[in-house]
Design a protein around this nucleic acid. Sequence first.
DNA 1: GGCTACATGTAATGCGTTACATGATTTC
DNA 2: GAAATCATGTAACGCATTACATGTAGCC
Lengths: 183, 183
Amino acid sequence: MQLQAKYVILGLLYKQPMSGYEMKKRFEEHFSFFFDASYGSVYPSLAKLEQEGCITKQTVLQEGRPNKFTYEITLQGREQFNDYLKSPLGTDSTRSDLCMRLYFGEFTDEQTIVDWLERGMQANLEQLETLEKLKNQYVSQMSAAQRICISIGIEHHRARYDSIRQGLEQIRQMDPIKKEETR
Amino acid sequence: MQLQAKYVILGLLYKQPMSGYEMKKRFEEHFSFFFDASYGSVYPSLAKLEQEGCITKQTVLQEGRPNKFTYEITLQGREQFNDYLKSPLGTDSTRSDLCMRLYFGEFTDEQTIVDWLERGMQANLEQLETLEKLKNQYVSQMSAAQRICISIGIEHHRARYDSIRQGLEQIRQMDPIKKEETR
DNA sequence: GGCTACATGTAATGCGTTACATGATTTC
DNA sequence: GAAATCATGTAACGCATTACATGTAGCC
């Protein structure tokens, strides 16, 4: 019972009805550091869950914007989600193109490595800032567990940012000539 | 050109011939914090790469253990790997069952959350220790980029471990009665 | 005898991405 | 008129996992 879109969707609907579009938004804004799924994953999952009787579909007519379909969780859906929560904790998995490239860094030139590090650091910084804003904005409404969740994300990005920054400094110290040249 | 088994394999063979079994080992021992792939992924990838002319297969007769097939990278394979290194840096992606559950923590009881945190913390600590040993063991042979790579991994696990530990403390402070009871 | 490590593979299946396809409404 | 946001979906494809299947050799 691995972490997959299905359970995330059920979890979101556990509290309130929601549309597929809104779920995807939530993934981007709140879940970025531990989950992501594309529309091509959420819509089919929604269709399948409905077919299985875990959720029901409602049409919501909207003015000033396109209509949408929201989904409500059924008793059966709640049971499935509870089963997931009771199942053994799964392991985390990360895929990092940056780390991969650094591992094979000896097969390219120094400038390329510096570029990777700078890009990686920048991406990290942006995510860190986004998470900090998110925390400030929602901290009062968050559960204790959610506060731990976001702390993990923030500290993760902070640690990564620091590691990359230090790495860059070390490379530049090793090669002071290049450093002067690029100024 | 996303990070996938194919390029990782080519990267490993860039330096020296290797068997599928050895690659999987390397993933477990060195790559755990940024990549993983099962045998069901590496053997078919190897077959495909050979078919494409990126690698060649050799049979190595061994005594005292089963024979094995090692693979050598071809010129074409090297070119493909260089193209990967030249392609734009991909984004990192993480999937964390722990964070997912914490996000939905309000739908379960406190003891369950504490269990998750303890398990997560333990798993993290083990990985941290493994990485630190790895670093101590290989640091003298590692390239500058590889040293940065492993630092990212170590600091990532350390930050995560600290976040979880602090989270646990906060939960226990909130609920001193339970804390006494479980002693 | 049983367990672990070494060693390679296949088949079924699932999960997920990308690109495609469409269309309304709002804002600049 | 163009771009962004809102909104839903499909199809092709690839990648990867799990479970299955097999076999050797060393060690306790």
